[in-house]
Amino acid sequence: MTAVAAPRTLPAGERETLFWRSMLIQAGWNFEGMQNLGFLYALEPGLARVHRDPERRRRAQMRHLGFFNTEPHMAGFALGATLVLEEDVARATEDADEAAAVQRVERLKRALGSALAALGDPFYWGTLRPATAAWTLVAWTALWTLGAPSPVAFGTALGLAAFNAPALWTRWVGPRLGYERGEGLPAELKRLGWPEKALLVRRIGLAGAALAAAAALAVPPFGGTPSWANAAVLAGAFGLRLRGHGSLGVYSALALASAVLSAAGA
């Protein structure tokens, strides 16, 4: 019969420390180490607990000043998982054991950096941000149409809350899950189903964008007098984006063409 090790739990207070310190994960962002300074800053109190030996602590600090980069809201997972493996480094009694444990830490950090970015970037920046932008516009229009006071302020607050609820939740659960799962974290991340969640948010966002477009075509100040020209611009912009043309370029070209045509008296 093999004994199953009980999952380790993050010591009291450390989760809060990792949560708050992870807000500065990018405060020292640079082209060489990317998030290296922020990573060490967040991890340092944990390292001080784990490594009682000052020389080992110093070596750990120096190691964590090496390159690290991931999606910032997801960094907590990597912080927790790194901390639990640092405990193995601290427990090593022989140099060879310590070197092997250090290698595991480095390997996990490298793997998690790219894996977490591959999940977090499409979710937060590719999906949640545009989806909350669409629903913020819907909220502005709805509150304004209903005659609510300060529609822009309230609508914007709703949009910020919609983005930050999952973002802060991820930052809060990340260190705990990372610490508990350690090297088993990638399997746990797979179980959480980020791509499926992203697809759902994208559909909700698309509904918001469609509603905002319909409102812009039908409701003043932009619409109100259904205009085929406005609908054609909307469809044209969609088509041009499909072909990879940026809106800024399209806007600038249209502005230039319109100004020249106006000056020419067309």
């Binding site: 545009p130 611009v233 044209g236 969609f238 984006r241 809106s247 502005a255 106006s262 000056a263």
Partner: peptide, 20 residues
């Protein structure tokens, strides 16, 4: 001329958002 494009800008932006 510039004003005409400005009036069309919300629709340009929404078309882009829908595609995104």
């Amino acid at each position: 001329g510039l004003e005409r494009v400005w009036q069309a800008a919300p629709f340009l932006a929404l078309g882009s958002l829908l595609q995104r």
